[in-house]
Simulated assay, not measured.
Amino acid sequence: MARSRMPRPRQLIFAFYMSCLMSFLMSGVITMINTGVEGPFLQRWLAAWLVAWAVAYPLVVFIAPLAGRLTEATLRRFGASDTPE
């Protein structure tokens, strides 16, 4: 049975920035599409972003390692890899 590792500081900092930027941009686009930019757009966007970030940060912490493994498996499958041999 594989033992789970605690995330390293670099992983947590990466997850913080990635989740902030992605949730900020995605919530802005989705808020604009759903409600337009009229009225208190900025308040709606920031409220949506806080919820999105609260979900995004823990997901990035736990999903980034899986995404890395899937990337490596895909590259191996198609004979391409950026890892030195």
Rank of each mutant, 00 (worst) to 15 (best):
F41I: 10
I13K: 06
Q43W: 08
P9C: 05
L46M: 15
I63T: 15
T71L: 05
I33E: 08
G79M: 03
M22K: 00
G39M: 09
S27T: 01
L42K: 09
I13F: 14
R10C: 03
I13A: 13
G79Q: 07
G36E: 11
F78T: 01
L75T: 00
L66N: 04
R10Q: 10
M32P: 00
A80K: 08
V51E: 14
E72Q: 11
S27K: 03
R69P: 03
T71I: 05
S27L: 01
C20F: 11
P58C: 07
L59D: 09
M6I: 11
S19G: 01
W49K: 07
S4I: 14
L66R: 11
M18I: 12
G68L: 04
M32D: 10
F16H: 02
P7W: 08
A64E: 15
P58E: 07
A15F: 02
S4K: 14
M22I: 06
G28S: 05
M22R: 00
A67L: 15
P7S: 09
M32R: 11
I13V: 14
P84L: 13
M32A: 14
W45N: 12
G28M: 08
F78G: 01
P65M: 12
N34F: 10
F24M: 02
R10H: 07
S23A: 13
G68I: 06
P7N: 07
P7G: 10
V37H: 09
P65T: 07
G36A: 08
L70G: 10
R76T: 00
R44F: 13
A67W: 09
N34D: 13
P7D: 06
A48I: 12
V51D: 15
V60G: 02
L25D: 03
Y17A: 06
G28I: 03
L42G: 07
L12H: 08
A73W: 06
V60C: 05
L70F: 12
A47C: 05
P65Y: 13
G39E: 11
M32F: 11
I30D: 04
Y17Q: 02
W53P: 02
S23F: 01
R8P: 06
P58Y: 11
V61K: 09
A67D: 01
E38H: 11
I33D: 04
T74I: 04
G28D: 02
R76C: 01
V51Y: 15
L75F: 03
R10M: 10
